[in-house]
């Protein structure tokens, strides 16, 4: 029983991390059809910010966390401004390939200017301690992660429902030109989308860093690959879909860890991706995606 509860909490924590990242991808995709593969490098920017603070002997956890998040938001907005603006109205493939290119550039810049090797960041270890939750041993980090994700989802929902800009972003997912035609500046909508996306990546960065304790140029790649998968599963562009997809992916991963015999551990990713591919065959557009009309829009 205790084992099951532990694994459920494991799945929730994994899922929360994927959901955070997937939301960041989905919010950008929903308004501009861009699959932002460079999202992972935004996480790395947060990580390297922590390294920089460490070098400056700044260890105050609040400053470290705040700076990492702010740096991620800033980097995300800069990407929109300089890399993605030229392909703003291009087809998804052009956007996807641009994002691959940006991701490659950033990874190699980290490699070039910082180091190809992992650098230890210990300032966030304090977030992780064992907690006894109703007799079950769990990690505080997992609870933080699940809690923070829940909070973020609620905050995001309020933003999207209550503020004019939030409402505009929901409208933009459907008809961007019409949003401009009511006088809302396209640049602002894009900037806010990337700002929110960067914020989500920054938060995910905190948890990723607290868990792995080191940063390297390629650290963002795997998490974003998973987030990408989560988005696809949930239905690309759908925000609830991204959250659902994230948690499904977390559950599948933990199930694989639990169910697969020890010696098959190396095949975990293969099984996860296999299951995801099967899911897509069953629902080609993802679970929660709106029906896509292939004809001309009137």
């Amino acid at each position: 029983m205790e084992y099951i509860v532990q694994q459920v909490i494991n799945a929730l924590a994994f899922g929360a991390e994927y959901a955070l990242l997937a939301l960041g991808l989905a919010i950008v995709f929903s308004i501009m059809g861009l699959v932002n593969f460079a999202h992972g490098e935004i996480i790395a920017v947060g990580g390297y910010t922590m390294v920089a603070l460490g070098a400056l002997m700044i260890g105050n956890p609040y400053i470290v966390i705040a700076s990492a998040v702010v740096a991620a938001m800033f980097a995300s907005v800069m990407l929109e401004r300089f890399a993605f603006r030229p392909v703003r109205y291009a087809d998804p493939t052009t956007g996807l390939l641009t994002a691959f290119g940006v991701s490659m550039i950033l990874q190699n810049l980290f490699l070039l200017f910082v180091s190809p090797r992992p650098i230890a960041v210990t300032s966030l270890y304090f977030l992780d301690w064992p907690v006894n939750l109703f007799g079950v041993q769990v990690s505080s980090l997992q609870l933080f992660e699940t809690g923070a994700t829940a909070l973020v989802i609620v905050a995001l929902m309020l933003f999207l429902r209550r503020t004019t800009l939030g409402i505009a972003m929901r409208a933009a997912a459907l008809d961007f030109e019409m949003v401009r035609l009511v006088g809302i500046r396209a640049n602002r909508v894009f900037a806010v989308a990337f700002l929110v996306s960067g914020l989500l990546a920054g938060l995910a960065c905190i948890f990723i860093m607290a868990r792995r304790g080191s940063v390297d140029p390629h650290m963002g790649f795997n998490p974003v690959l998973k987030a990408f998968v989560a988005c696809v599963v949930g239905g690309f562009g759908s925000l609830p879909g991204a959250v659902l997809g994230g948690f499904i992916l977390g559950a599948v991963e933990v199930a694989m860890l639990v169910l697969l015999p020890q010696e098959y551990g190396g095949m975990k990713d293969a099984f996860v991706f296999g299951i995801i591919a099967l899911l897509l065959i069953w629902r080609p557009n993802g679970i929660l995606s709106p029906r896509i009309e292939k004809g001309d829009k009137v």
Partner: peptide, 19 residues
């Protein structure tokens, strides 16, 4: 300058897509 080739390759993709 390790990583330069990666930067160049990425830049080729981004610039091609943009222009």
């Amino acid at each position: 300058v390790l990583g330069l080739s990666g930067v160049v390759l990425g830049a080729v993709i981004v610039l091609t897509m943009a222009f």
